[in-house]
Design a protein around this nucleic acid. Structure first.
Length: 559
RNA sequence: UGGCGCGUGGCUCAACGGUAGAGCACCUGACUCUGGAUCAGGGGGUUCCAGGUUCGAAUCCUGGCGCGCCAGCCA
């Protein structure tokens, strides 16, 4: 049998490079790495990088390491390490074997620093941070050499050893590469390689009081691990020259290659650890895992399935163009997964009572309801039906506008999987507000079909009033009210005041009590919902993950 | 008035000298026991601009213009 010839998948520019390296015999399989700094929580932008690095490794039969870039003890915390590992696993990726750390290589990196001193490629500078800044020059003017640049190898060796020994306070001296103070690439103007930091490191404790900078540690860690393709975001482009310089000047065991791609940006949100930290610290959200946060843990609490996030990453692609993805694309990817996998349930967010006058008082019957029309394996369930029901308040209009298909006085609609009902009257309170609907039902329509072929234009969801379970439901919207938060002034002024709306009197189908944490269901006609971590037996709390695609809202908006 | 990088429908990406395509978004229609899903169709592009090379340029060359990044002992 001749195998189907499928059109070749279009490779992004990085996968093209990897494929070419394999084809040319330069590597047998790619080694990549995801290198988070443990100074905050992972967000959807990191998910793009995770999907890229782990995806390439898997597709080409290679491997992806998880390596913490823990070279700055003053910003890094153990708690972040744990959260990051959990989030990567939840996304569905496995780095197999041990978690790696740049700090595992501190001794080797130190030896390489000594090597650079011996070859005359590095020197200890006694200048202060201010002096170094002043002599670095500007974007248009060259820098000036440090007066300490030509120290002897012996003196440099001695000073560097004493830096390590803790003889000097923070900032007293640094180790710098001797490259070129006149380079048009500012990164190459004798960059700092080591600085004195008397701080306890989350992993190495007080073993060190000098720490390598990112540039000194990153490429060297890649080389130690045999990383073939070191993928990072565009802002590291300028650092590539230094990355290569260090690899060339050091006796490293392999020669990794840095490739940059555009980081993910999304409309209506912010992907900046600095800003996210402020949102948390200043109490604008419930925490790092607030369902409005673009963090992985926030998306999880919101009810986004990992598969949806992975599909999204595949959908946006990888390129070198700075770009901003419409938030709607993330929603599209998530809806596509949820539509396929989420079980359907009934829940009424804003209930109004319906009394079916010709339905026998005290009678209860059960109807069989399909759990997921997209997945027959999901089976069916029984739902109780009775004389008094809750339906959605806005599924009724006393004076229906044009193109409103739902319940209105004298109009017949279908109650999903149950009966056709016709509104025969309304009950109002003293203020004139409708508080109850009086209806009649047609016993011949049990199950939702009329023997005479009658087809109502609307089908409503409902919950039996005597069986309903009350719940709090939290409705979420964009964290920021404009697609480009902060574009015109203060970012925090653009926070959406309605990003969380709490609904207290929702009435749910009793089976919803059994939905577990991490499970997302569809409330028919409303959207996808998941239990919040605050949810307790007897005090249910659901988060709205997403609405269903809202055509009716569009019709309304158009008038 | 430095260096590096990037400019293709509203958004994200293809097209690698040979008729500018896809997904999302948008609009129609069909179907439907979710105003969902699904299916069918449609509109929308001086490929940043100007020159040049070529039978032929989104693609190669030159010059502009616009945008991004870089002057941390952050990553």
């Amino acid at each position: 049998m001749i195998p189907e010839t499928t059109a070749p998948e279009r490779l992004d520019f990085i996968r093209e490079i990897v494929a070419a390296d394999i084809a040319a015999g330069r590597i047998r399989a790619p080694i990549t790495r995801f290198p988070p700094e443990p100074n905050g929580y992972l967000h959807i932008g990191h998910a793009k990088s995770i999907a890229l690095n782990f995806g390439i490794a898997a597709e080409f039969g290679g491997h992806c390491n998880l390596r913490f870039d823990d070279t700055n003890p003053v910003k890094e915390e153990r708690a972040y390490i744990d959260a990051i590992e959990r989030d990567i696993r939840w996304l569905g990726y496995d780095w197999g074997g041990a978690t790696l750390h740049a700090s595992d290589y501190f001794e080797q990196i130190y030896d390489w620093a000594v090597h650079l001193i011996r070859t005359g490629d590095a020197f200890v500078d006694d200048q202060s941070a201010d002096q170094i800044r002043e002599t670095r020059g500007t974007l248009t003017e060259p820098g000036r050499n440090s007066p300490y640049r030509d120290r002897s190898v012996e003196e440099n060796l001695d000073l560097f050893a004493r830096m390590r020994a803790g003889e000097f306070p923070n900032g007293a001296r640094v180790l710098r590469a001797r490259i070129d103070m006149t380079s048009p690439n500012v990164t190459l103007r004798d960059p700092v390689l080591y600085r004195i930091v008397h701080a306890t490191h989350p992993r190495t404790g007080d073993a060190w009081c000098i720490y390598p900078t990112y540039d000194m540690a990153h490429g060297q860690s890649d080389a130690i691990e045999g990383v073939s393709h070191s993928l990072c975001t565009l802002e590291f482009e300028n650092n590539r020259a230094l990355y290569d310089w260090l690899i060339e000047h050091l006796p490293v065991p392999s020669r990794p290659r840095q490739i940059e791609f555009a980081r993910l940006s999304l409309t209506y949100t912010v992907l900046s650890k600095r800003v996210l930290l402020r949102l948390v610290n200043e109490g604008h959200v419930r925490g790092w895992d607030d369902p409005r946060m673009p963090t992985i843990s926030g998306l999880r609490r919101r009810g986004f399935p990992p598969e949806g996030i992975r599909d999204f990453a595949a959908m946006v692609g990888v390129a070198r163009t700075d770009s901003v993805i419409e938030y709607g694309q993330l929603e599209y990817a998530v809806r596509a997964v949820l539509n396929r996998t989420a079980q359907r349930r009934f829940g009424v967010l804003d209930p109004i009572k319906v009394v079916i006058e010709n339905y026998p008082e005290g009678q209860v019957e059960t109807v069989e309801v399909v759990n997921n029309p997209e997945d027959s394996a999901a089976g069916t369930r029984s739902v109780e039906f009775g004389r008094e029901l809750w339906i959605e308040r806005d599924d009724f209009a006393e004076d229906p506008p044009p193109k409103f298909f739902r319940l209105a006085p004298g109009r017949e609609v279908r109650l999903r999987n149950a009966y056709f009902i016709t509104c025969t009257g309304v009950v109002k309170d003293a203020a004139g507000r409708v508080v109850e609907l009086r209806c009649s039902f047609d016993p011949a329509t049990r199950g939702g079909d009329a023997p005479d072929g009658r087809r109502p234009k609307a089908t409503l969801h409902w919950v039996s009033a005597s069986h309903a379970v009350p719940a709090e439901v939290r409705l979420y919207d964009h964290l920021f009210s404009r697609p480009d938060p902060g574009a015109e002034g203060d970012l925090f002024a653009d926070l959406n005041p309605d990003s969380e709306r709490i609904v207290r009197g929702a009435m749910l189908e009793p089976s919803l009590v059994d939905v577990g944490l991490g499970e997302t269901v569809q409330f028919e006609r409303l959207g996808y919902f998941t239990p919040d971590t605050d949810s307790r037996p007897g005090a249910l709390v659901f988060n709205r993950t997403l609405t269903l695609k809202a055509t009716w809202a569009k019709v309304q908006a158009k008038g």
